[in-house]
Amino acid sequence: MASGSKGPRGTTLYCPEHPDAPLVEDYHAGDMICPECGLVVGDRVVDVGTEWRTFSNDKNQKDPCRVGAAENPLLDGGDLSTMIAPGAMGETITDEHGKPVYRNRRTLNSSDRALMTAFREISQIADRLNLPKMIVDRANTLFKQVHDGKSLKGRSNDAVAAACMYIACRQESVPRTFKEICGVSKISKKEIGRVFKLILKTLETNVDLITTGDFMSRFCSNLNLPHSVQKAATSIAKKAVEKDLVPGRSPVSVAAAAIYMASQASEHRKSQKEIGDIAGVAEVTIRQSYKLMYPKAHDLFPEDFKFAIPIEQLPAQ
């Protein structure tokens, strides 16, 4: 610890003879010691480490620790209340070491039980999609708002959880498609879309419009395409939208078609099937968007793109 270490009640501890020397903490004795002269500057320092030690060869694999689960502000009481579990005759239940077994009082609350189940489902969806914790936190908050409003009663909590995850991804600028959310949950794409619209209407919130650029980096990375192809595909998709070459087409299908066109003109050629598997788009959908963009291919590529295959030799569909 540094020479300005905090002692009891926030006081600053330092050695009067060596004020610049970093103090060493003796966790076993609770002392703060000067390494230069050995002076015990402070004693009875509270040890904030665990109270128990565990060993890999112990028969009992339980790991008793100082506190329970982390506090969850979305649950009543912060999810900290506990109770000693009573036995059949009213006596306290103990484990093999004679210590009382504690159970969460919240298991009796049906509302919080529903929340915890939904939070677990949201966390599992995030794990399958490799999404960060901030997405999970936003989705949990959205579900809590919907749950407290009671405006979607009768809807499956799993469907609401999946829709909240979709909205959270959109709001955090890492959008996922309905098909991707559907693929890692137990809910149909149609039901997720229906609940998504109801949540937006209920919470009076909105999400940014999805653009082709939202998916380009992820799709190209999953296809192991270099940055030059990604840059070209981004330019192709952006100009195709600006020139209104693909009216009514979804940003995902336009992005997939742009990647197909850019890859076919480079040394890293990808088939429509390979791109469709990554983007979650049918080959026929990619083909239809590509056919709309192909006649204007000369105007869509960036000027500095190095063609391995001339535009005239690109497939017509």
Results as ranks from 00 to 15, higher is better:
Ala240Met: 08
Asp43Ala: 03
Gln61Met: 14
Gly248Val: 15
Ala232Leu: 08
Arg103Leu: 11
Thr177Lys: 02
Arg105Gly: 00
Thr12Lys: 12
Ile84Phe: 09
Thr117Glu: 09
Asp304Glu: 10
Leu203Gly: 05
Val48Arg: 10
Ala168Phe: 01
Ile199Asn: 01
Ser266Asn: 04
Gln124Ser: 15
Thr205Val: 13
Ser263Arg: 09
Leu152Arg: 08
Cys220Glu: 01
Cys37Trp: 09
Glu180Ile: 11
Ser188Lys: 09
Phe215Val: 07
Asp95Lys: 04
Ile278Arg: 00
His227Asp: 14
Cys15Leu: 05
Ile199Lys: 03
His268Val: 04
Ile259Leu: 06
Ser156Phe: 02
Gln145Pro: 03
Arg194Gln: 12
Thr82Leu: 08
Arg106Gly: 15
Arg106Trp: 13
Thr202Leu: 05
Gln171Ser: 03
Asn104Val: 05
Leu75Pro: 02
Lys190Leu: 12
Val252Pro: 02
Met116His: 12
Ala70His: 11
Val48Ile: 14
Met89Gly: 11
Gly193Thr: 10
Glu283Cys: 07
Lys153Trp: 01
Asn130Gly: 01
Val195Cys: 01
Thr11Ser: 13
Ser56Gly: 00
Val246Glu: 04
Met89Val: 10
Asp95Phe: 08
Ala159Phe: 04
Arg66Gln: 01
Phe55Leu: 10
Glu17His: 09
Ile187Phe: 06
Val284Asn: 10
Leu39Lys: 11
Ser271Val: 03
Ser235Arg: 07
Pro310Val: 09
Leu142Pro: 07
Ala70Gln: 11
Thr12Arg: 11
Asp148Ala: 11
Asp43His: 07
Ser56Met: 10
Asn72Thr: 10
Ser151Cys: 05
Ser156Gln: 02
Phe178Gly: 09
Arg176Phe: 04
Gly154Cys: 10
Thr205Gln: 01
Gly4Val: 08
Val246Phe: 12
Phe143Lys: 00
Arg138Ser: 10
Leu39Asn: 09
Tyr102Met: 13
Thr50Ala: 12
Ala256Trp: 03
Ser235Phe: 06
Val195Asn: 00
Val136Arg: 02
Cys220Ser: 08
Ile278Gln: 03
Ala88Val: 14
Asp137Cys: 04
Arg106Met: 15
Pro64Phe: 01
Ser289Thr: 12
Ile286Trp: 04
Arg44Gln: 06
Thr177Asn: 07
Ser110His: 08
Ile311His: 07
Gln272Cys: 01
Asp31His: 10
Cys164His: 08
Asp158Leu: 15
Gly78Trp: 01
His298Asp: 15
Ala308His: 14
Leu131His: 02
Lys273Thr: 07
Ala297Val: 14
Ala232Arg: 13
Ile93Cys: 11
Leu13Met: 07
Cys65Asp: 06
Glu180Gly: 04
Gly78Glu: 01
Glu283Asp: 14
